[in-house]
Structure formats: structure tokens, C-alpha cells
Design a protein around this nucleic acid. Structure first.
Lengths: 294, 294
DNA sequence: GATCATTACGAGCCGCGTAATCATT
DNA sequence: AATGATTACGCGGCTCGTAATGATC
């Protein structure tokens, strides 16, 4: 089970074709066919069926393992490179849309003051891939957020030895249209809203599935899905009555036609964590210190 | 970065010797030396220093990745083999010491009734390695337990696509000597005991570190460590006043000289989860159904 | 019959073992 | 001096590409 074979396997599975995988990987058809044959001989089972080309049952399973494995290999490479390489004058910060706020802005300004020539990039992506981005070195550090029990760490995928530090916790609120019967409340229990329509915005806040896991309450089936990463768009849908959204208190603050009611039960907060690997002294380490308060 | 190189690397690091690693792996010294050289050339850094032989900084880091990587490779192999192989008449159940109880006994009796000739083994090991045992097929399924917020999943290491189902939740109690001032209480808050002496029993209940993470409260520094896996031994130490222990309610029930007071705050329960991979029809699948109540 | 996967075969490379060399205690 | 890691070198096997074959739509 060589990494190269796995890489070829996932490519074939993704593209559904030996030939196209060969093209993408710079092999001949023949080489791809032989790699898959060797992999199957090694495992003693077919992992792909042909015509049409697709993963078998065992192949589906192998895909999950292979993805994690290849990611981890990249992560290990990046980790070592970080330790051995010269301190770079590049700083790439990963963050979820909701994690980009005033604190990060201020901290980055300070970094700029200390390292005037640093090549600064902020990369906004969804929560679930951020740990992988940190592990593989695509970003130096990342701000990840999501709902969690107070003082509970966020459940992040395990892609390597990463440090996570809490940097902020703010109340979690339900965003609802201004005219909603509950809009005037000073607080509410999520259980009261089990029959409500929810907007699922996987690019912004954790998906309903993860929320259910965090709260232990079933039944947050979303009425609609919002695939953007802009909070204002989501809040416009909320205002229009398409459904409710669970957000950190700062997100809907001051938006017209949207009311925000703190969640009282279950006890949840919106937590922001800093995720990073080894940080050699430089702008990245400074930013980490600034964000965590030394 | 071939898996073989990593396996050789971790062996050398563990044994602190190229020659001994060669003996253990069935290579010559030379081959081991060349594999390490190739690995270091690939990574562009030394991962071992020689005389004495030991991991460098980058090597330490690589060790963490390599361990997870090799484990996952074994897990993938075992996973595939399970799917492809013939249904076995062997059933190996993994469990933590505290998870072996009446329910498991009854369920196993029923399995025996349905499969009279099954080769049945119960393997009791510490929590933290159980998921790996399941992933690599050392056990077919496992009962893992530990403290958690109500309805919260246990934080288990991610070693592959494993299914986890809650099978039981019981109150968490503080075990304290009968004469202890708090022994008569009907409930207490852990915060009240922050200054107490704790017994850390990593083989039985999660370590203090994990408990701190679960509760968000710092300062559960253990006064003593108990390395056995027998609850009665631990409770004897509690009775003798060496410290307190956090256990599920059933563990200290009826033990003389030990009082058990339920934990009221933070809201924690002792949760037992069934962990398993793909379960082809057979005794393992039956046991899983019995434990989860269909 | 065209597309695409498999098989046959030869060439090059890689990784191992043997054996000699070098370094450290 | 002896133990143990590295280097030199040749052999065997593995994997690739080319090319022919086979299968499926």
C-alpha cells in the first residue's frame, strides 16, 4: 500500500477514469492500470470496478483512509519543512468568515508595525478545512470558530500535532426576523425552536449535524441552505423570513429587520480558537502572542 | 517518505540503535542506514543524530506523524480485510475495566446462545488505545467510557471511520473516605474540591488532563497515581484517605468505608460508548445490536 | 469501430546485501 | 581494539513506457 498507489487510486476514483487520471498524474494509462492492479493484489480485493469506473465497497472505505493518509503525509512534510526552513517573511492567516473581526485587524496592524515588509495574506475558508490548511502549511495559523459548551474545545478534525488556544468566547444568538413573535425575548431555549425553520450555512457556521452533536438535541433539519460566506446575505434571508440562524452575537448586531435573541439553553457559546503548528520566531509567532494575549 | 522508511525510522528511534533496529526488522545495518539516509535526503533534514542515536527536533515531530500514519495504514488494511474476508467465528470485545458490567455479561450470554461455538474473548485495556484496537481489528468492537457533558460524545482519537453509539450514561460521583466532611452530602460541585487531593488512575478513568479539558476547570493535579486497573484497589486508597477519585456511580457502590457523592456541577455524566468499524453479519453485529438496544 | 482498460515485454532505477571503510568510545 | 554507522558496488526486483491485445459501449 504505497502512498503513490493511494494517490493514483483516489485520482482514478475522483475522475472515474484510468486514462484521465493518467493524464492528470503524468503517467501512461498502463502505469495507472498496473498501480491499481498492484494495490488490489496487495489488499486481496478489488477496490474499483471498471466500466463504469468507480469505487467498490472496499474502495469506498479505502478512499476515506487514503484521504486522511495523504493529508497527513503532506502535513508531516510541511511540519518538518517549517522546522528546518529559514524563517519566512510571509504570513498567511487562515480564518472563517465570522472570525475576521476587529481583534484580528488590530493584531495584524501591530504585526505590520513590527515587520513592515511582511507579505501578508488573509485566507477565508470554511471551518472544516482550516486544520488541514494549518497542518499542510497552506496557512501559518488559523482562527476557527463555532458553537461549543462554555470552555469546551471545538471538535476539530485530527490532522496532526496542532496547538489550539481559545482566543474568544461570545454569546450565541438566534437571528430571527424583526417581526417574529420571539423577537422581543431576552433569551430563549433552543428546544423551544425545535419546530422552527433553520437556515444551514455550512460556509459560515457549523452545519446542523455538528450542532446536533454539540447540543445532543436532534432535529435541526435545515429548511434551506445558504452556500455563501457573507453574513449579510444570510441575514437578509433571515429578515425575509426564510428561517432562523444561529450566530455569534456580533454577527447580526445592528442589522435592520433582524432581531438577535441570546440562547439560554443549552448553555452554548460561540468560541474562537487559534490553531497553529510549530511557530518559529517571526511574524506568525508575534501574531499568535497578540491574539492570545501573550 | 515511504511507509517502510517510517517504520524503520520509528524502530531506530525506539531502540536507539541502527543495528538493533536492523535485527528486529530483518534487515542488515546497511539497509537501515540507507533507508534513514534516503528519508533524510527526501525531507532535507536530519531526523536522527548519531552517537548516541536519537531523534532530532524534526525527528521528534516526525515520530508523532509516523505513529499516526502507520497506525492508519494498519487500520485501512484491517478495514478492507474485514469487508472482504469471510465472516469469522471469533468475537473479541475490547473494553475498559469500568465498562465490563452486567449489561455486557448478559449480552454476551445471549450471543453465546445464538452462536454456541463462537471463540469469545474479552480484552480489557485502557481507553486511549481502544479506538486503535478497533481500527486495526485487534478487537471487533469496544466499550469505551469516560466523563462527558450529558449527551456529548466522548473525545476519542481519530484513527479511521469508526461508528460510535452511546450505550449508557450514569451519574458521575466523587469517591471519598467515609469519614470525610463532605461524605454526607447529596451532591457537590467539583469547584468546591479544587484544593483536594486527587487520585489519578489512567488505567481506569480518564487522566486529570482530559478531565480538565472536559470541564474547563484547571487544577486537578493528582496527589498520587494509581496504575492498576482494578477499581477495588483504587477505592482502598480512597478509603485510606490518599485522595479522592471521580468514578461512575456503580463503581464504588456498596464498598465499605467509601462514600460516593454525585457531582452536581459541572454537569457531567459517565458515558459509555460502543465503538466499532464495519460489522459483517455475525456474532459481533449481534452483540452490537444487543448493546445498543437494536 | 472507437474508446479505454489490460497484458506483454524490455529498459532503467531503486533498494537490498556483501564487504570494505570510517568514526567514536 | 571493538562496536557500530557509512560508503562502494553489484545483483535482483520493481515500475515505468511502448506496444499489442482485449473488452465494452
Amino acid at each position: 500500500m504505497e502512498p503513490q498507489q493511494l494517490r493514483t487510486f483516489v485520482t482514478v476514483a475522483r475522475l472515474g477514469s484510468f486514462s484521465e487520471a493518467a493524464r492528470e498524474l503524468g503517467y501512461t494509462q498502463s502505469a495507472v492500470s498496473q498501480q491499481i492492479a498492484a494495490l488490489e493484489a496487495d489488499l486481496g480485493t478489488a477496490v474499483l470496478h471498471r466500466r463504469p469506473v468507480g469505487p467498490t465497497g472496499a474502495g469506498e472505505r479505502l478512499l476515506e483512509h487514503a484521504g486522511a493518509l495523504l493529508l497527513r503525509i503532506d502535513a508531516a512534510r510541511a511540519d518538518i519543512a517549517r522546522l528546518a526552513g529559514a524563517p519566512s517573511a510571509r504570513l498567511t492567516v487562515g480564518a472563517t468568515p465570522l472570525a475576521v473581526g476587529a481583534e484580528l485587524g488590530r493584531a495584524l496592524a501591530e504585526v505590520r508595525r513590527a515587520y513592515p515588509v511582511v507579505d501578508l495574506t488573509v485566507r477565508v475558508v470554511a471551518q472544516d478545512v482550516l486544520p488541514a490548511e494549518v497542518a499542510t502549511g497552506a496557512v501559518d495559523l488559523a482562527l476557527v470558530d463555532g458553537p461549543a459548551a462554555p470552555s469546551d474545545p471545538l471538535p476539530l478534525p485530527d490532522v496532526g500535532p496542532l496547538a489550539t488556544v481559545a482566543v474568544a468566547e461570545q454569546p450565541l444568538v438566534v437571528a430571527l426576523p424583526a417581526g417574529h413573535p420571539l423577537a422581543g425575548r431576552s433569551g430563549l431555549a433552543l428546544a423551544d425552536l425545535s419546530a422552527a425553520h433553520w437556515l444551514d450555512a455550512p460556509g459560515l457556521a457549523p452545519t446542523a449535524a455538528r450542532l446536533s452533536a454539540a447540543t445532543g438535541v436532534e432535529g435541526y433539519r435545515p429548511a434551506a441552505r445558504y452556500l455563501g460566506t457573507d453574513v449579510r446575505g444570510l441575514l437578509a434571508l433571515v429578515a425575509a423570513g426564510h428561517g432562523l440562524a444561529l450566530l455569534p452575537a456580533t454577527a447580526p448586531a445592528g442589522v435592520p429587520d433582524v432581531a438577535a435573541v441570546p440562547v439560554r439553553a443549552p448553555r452554548l457559546v460561540h468560541r474562537t480558537e487559534l490553531v497553529h503548528g510549530a511557530l518559529p520566531e517571526g511574524p506568525a509567532a508575534l501574531l499568535a502572542r497578540l491574539l492570545t494575549g501573550e
